[in-house]
Simulated assay, not measured.
Amino acid sequence: MFLRAWAYTCKYIVEKGEAPRLLPEEITPSFEWKSIQDSKGLEEAYINLWATIGKRLESGSDSNPRSVEPLPKLEVQPNLLRANFHLSSEVIKKLRESVLRYHPEATDPTKRLNLSTYVLACSYVSICLVKARGGDADREVYFAWSADCRSRLDPPLPPNHFGNTAVVHHIVSKAGDFMQENGLAIIAEKLSASIKRLEKGLIEGSNERLEMLLSLGPEVQLISVAGSTGLEFYNTDFGWGNVEKVELTSIDRTGSFSVLDIRNGSDRRTEIGVALKRPEMESFASFFSNGVEVIF
C-alpha cells in the first residue's frame, strides 16, 4: 500500500509539478485496527517472542528484555553470489502439466489442486535448492511462506489497509521427496494442501509456528520466500515509466529467495532471485536450467 501511494505521489509531482492534495480512495491507506479480533492472543505472544529472541542474540547482556528496539542486524555472508532466473508463462504451463500427470485426480473439481504460478514457481525453486544443497535424503526440509490476511479475516480488512497483515505457514518434508523424479508433484501437492487449510484455520498454530521456525538447527534446511508476491513491483510507475529492475536485498541476509511477476504486454515471466555461495549457486543454476529442459 505504501509503495502504491508513494509511486502515485511521485508520478503526480513529475507530471503536475506539485504534490497531490488527496490520494485516490483505492490507495488512501486505512489505519483502522479495531475490527481485528485477536482471539488467540497473538499480540502478547509475539511481543514475548521478540523479547526472548533479543535476549538470545544479546547472549547475556544487561539489555532490557522488554525493549522494542530493533533486533541485531543479520550480516551478509562472505563470498555470496546473487543471480536472477526466469520462468516464462510457457514453462509455468509445462510445470502445471507435469504435476497433473502425477495427480490425474486433480481434474476432479472436488480434489482440485491450487497450481497457481506462485505455487508452481515456489515448488520448482525449492526442489532445485534442496538438490543444490545435497546431503542426507532423510534430513528434514521446511518450506515457509506467508499469506495476506486482509481478505481472509472475519470481518475482512479493506485492500488498502496499511500494515504488514500477513501470517506465516509452512510445510515439512524429507529432502528425498524434493529429489525424486516426481518431486515437483509431491511438493506442489503439499503446498496446495497447506494453502487450502487457510480456509479452515488462518492463524491456527501461529503462536508456536514462528518460534519453532526460528529455533531450527543447522541440520535442517529452511527455505522461505521473501517479500509480498501481491505487489506488482515491475508495474510501479514513479513518473519515469515502469521499473526496469527490482532487487530484494533481504535475500542476501536471510537465505530466502524472491518471486516477482513481470508483465510486459503479452510477455509474462516470473523472476526468481537467489543469493548463494558459488558452489551451491552453480549447482542450483544447473538443476534449474536442466529441469526446465526435461519438462519440455
Rank of each mutant, 00 (worst) to 15 (best):
L71R: 08
G135I: 07
L42N: 03
Q37E: 15
L202K: 03
L95G: 01
R263F: 08
V125F: 04
F238G: 01
S61W: 07
R82E: 13
L198F: 02
E105G: 03
K190S: 06
T236M: 10
M281T: 07
F296S: 14
T117E: 13
H169K: 10
S61K: 13
F143V: 10
L113A: 03
K174G: 05
L22Q: 15
E25R: 13
I223K: 01
K16S: 11
T229W: 10
E58D: 15
E244D: 15
G239L: 03
S250M: 04
D261T: 13
I36Y: 07
R21N: 12
L49A: 10
N79V: 02
I295G: 02
A188D: 01
S88Y: 06
Y12A: 09
I127W: 00
R150V: 05
P158S: 13
A185E: 01
G273N: 02
I262D: 04
I187R: 00
S151Q: 14
K190P: 01
P29F: 06
I203Y: 11
I186T: 09
T270N: 05
I272R: 00
K16Y: 09
L216Y: 05
E18K: 13
Y124G: 00
F257H: 00
S266G: 07
V14M: 11
Q77K: 15
A185Q: 02
A188K: 01
L210A: 07
A285F: 03
N164A: 13
I272W: 00
T110Q: 15
L22G: 01
L74M: 15
I195V: 12
E25C: 09
D261N: 15
L3K: 06
Q221E: 09
G176I: 05
L22P: 00
A132C: 06
Y234E: 08
I203W: 09
R268M: 08
R96Y: 04
E219H: 11
A144V: 05
H103M: 08
K190V: 03
R21C: 07
K196V: 06
V225E: 00
G135E: 05
H103V: 14
V119T: 12
E280D: 12
I92D: 00
R209V: 06
T254D: 09
G134H: 06
I53K: 09
L231P: 00
V91E: 12
S146C: 12
L157N: 03
L216D: 04
V119I: 14
E32Y: 11
R197S: 14
E211R: 14
A106G: 05
P70R: 08
P24K: 03
E232T: 04
S224E: 07
F288L: 07
H169E: 03
K196A: 10
A175K: 03
N182Q: 07
A45L: 04
V225I: 14
F2G: 13
S215A: 13
A226V: 02
T110I: 05
G273F: 01
L42G: 03
F296E: 14
S192D: 02
T165H: 10
E199F: 01
